[in-house]
Design a protein around this nucleic acid. Structure first.
Lengths: 212, 212
DNA sequence: GCCGGGGTCAGCCGATCGGATGACCCGCCG
DNA sequence: CGGCGGGTCATCCGATCGGCTGACCCCGGC
């Protein structure tokens, strides 16, 4: 897969056209990397991966409209086990990292990383080896040490409504449950997020990118 | 300033090394653009602008640590009126656009824009002409039609505390004012943001990037 | 010199929240 | 089959919030 005679076949996926063009120009300067496809949305990336038999998909997680990078990663790795997804993104929040890894990403690199790290990570990904940015690796380790609270689906539902600024009664109506249940969930959410007010919960949720 | 014999002298400022390298590779392919400097922080950009006599600074607004792109823009345009700052960023929120323009930015381009728009905007900026991405232009127009509420400094103080999840009493203590005053400000904040709960205010604040 | 905006403070009151406790149901796993 | 996690609901109560009204001060512009 890393035969010097055969350049790495790579698909680029980033919703920012300018950034994409920049990365394309950068990768083109590397003789052993062959950018065989460009995608501006998750759907495009999945479609390209299905027919291009690429070695690596360089994937941004934030893709504006349509499916996000995590979902795209999930579909690509499910359909094409030989195509390795290398996530290249801005954020190093726990939620993003965890979701990307469990979706099947081979590596997770930050855009703040040095460019040579990018090339190294691409090679690693092409061979199926994991490559993580140091800050990302640090977070993964930290998480293993003190496994962090994960919100249940229902709790995320509640949190989503909360982030709209709704009161308990409105949340209850929106989710077809009783106000008492809402308060029960809220209490657990406060516990898990380490806050004790709804405003604090919204702040943490937005900060950790727990919601869309 | 746009003599074909004299390429545009440009300084690149983006905290993401990978993106910066990509843009560098992209701009290098343009014969009439000469990237004379690269900066990963606002401070670096200001320093480079001070001594390099550049025509254009391509500036990201989100710069991680240190001063942000708006402050860097303010300092550069203050010190070097002939150096035009072209903002290149991801977000097209009103708050960002307004602050960048009032800081003296000559143009405001989104990273989602087509690359050829980037080149066009760079040329425009070099000549001191304004270049706005269509979505940005639209927002500017909309704002002129219905001037939107601007939070006062004090209201932002309150909002910042609120976003920490603090209660009224805690906010009052933190800002050395009475609880009654906090409530007065909060009421006005709710009005301006079009919400009626603290959770909603936090959500809007995070959404509109009204806070750091 | 008056007016308006921004900041500060007070008191009142109904609605809501936060916390605690206890309970039931269901699906899954050992 | 028994336990356990997740989801649901109820009740109670003190603390807090949100809305309202009215007031004072300072400063800068007309």
């Amino acid at each position: 897969m890393n035969d010097p005679a055969k350049p790495i076949r790579l698909i680029l996926c980033d919703d920012h056209a300018v950034v994409r063009a920049g990365l394309l120009a950068l990768l083109d300067s590397a003789p052993d990397v062959d950018v065989v496809g460009e995608a501006g949305t998750g759907e495009e990336a999945v479609a390209l991966a299905a027919k291009l038999n690429a070695d690596v998909v360089l994937m941004d997680l934030q893709l504006g409209a349509g499916i996000d990078g995590v979902e795209a990663t999930r579909r690509i790795t499910a359909e094409r086990p030989d195509t390795h997804v290398l996530v290249l993104t801005t954020y190093d929040t726990d939620a993003d990292i965890t979701r990307a890894i469990e979706a099947g990403a081979t590596g997770y690199l930050l855009k703040a990383e040095r460019p040579d790290e990018l090339f190294a990570a691409i090679h690693a990904a092409a061979e199926g080896r994991t490559a993580l940015s140091p800050p990302v690796a640090g977070r993964v380790m930290a998480r293993m040490r003190s496994p962090q609270p994960t919100l249940t689906d229902r709790e995320r539902d509640i949190l989503a409504q909360l982030a709209q600024g709704l009161g308990n009664r409105d949340i209850a109506r929106a989710l077809f449950i009783s106000e008492a249940t809402v308060k029960t969930h809220l209490g657990r959410i406060y516990d898990k997020l380490g806050v004790d007010t709804r405003a604090g919960a919204v702040a943490v949720a937005k900060e950790q990118r727990l919601l869309g």
